[in-house]
Amino acid sequence: MLNRLLLNHYEAAAVILSCIGLTNLLLQRNMIKKIIGLNIMDTAVYLFLAAKGYISGRTAPIYYLDANGEWVNQVQAYVNPVPAGLVLTGIVVSVSVTAFALALTLRLYEHYGTLNIDEALFLLEHKYELEYSSYNDDDELLYEFGVDNRDMIKAANEAASKSMNDKGGDEDHA
């Protein structure tokens, strides 16, 4: 068992990394950390593919001149090019998904002033939704990443009640 793991140490590392990435993607509360987890997972898959496509002692599948000045065009001289193609496609896909996820996170932050989806749900249930460009000073606790969640919810709760009081006051005034 250990022997096999040592023989395939690249693959073992890839599996461990992808597990770390998946755990981060599913269990982190902060969206940015989730996205970092996604990228770790994707990179681990590329490591796996690259390790699988490599054949020791061979070079990249590009024509080259050997020591005698002749073109090398034998299949036996090159590693498998298909995994490289797959990695390339995978990188493109991963970049676009990351960009899209970051854009959505930005929108979430504009609406709720938080990077935490669960907290956004809490704010939603308490009818507390920030208008565009009004998220500046009164809920600064929310900006701190990685604060204990109970503190954040407590802070959000206070902010929500405060905001509702403010709105109620405005209506009375009007």
């Binding site: 898959v45 959505l104 609406h111």
Partner: peptide, 24 residues
């Protein structure tokens, strides 16, 4: 509106986990 953005993000996170598993 914020509700749709939040739902989309939640959907995206689980979908990304799913497509990661498919890729592996």
């Amino acid at each position: 509106g914020g509700k749709a953005v939040r739902a989309a993000l939640r959907y995206l996170v689980l979908s990304m986990a799913g497509s990661g598993l498919i890729l592996i």
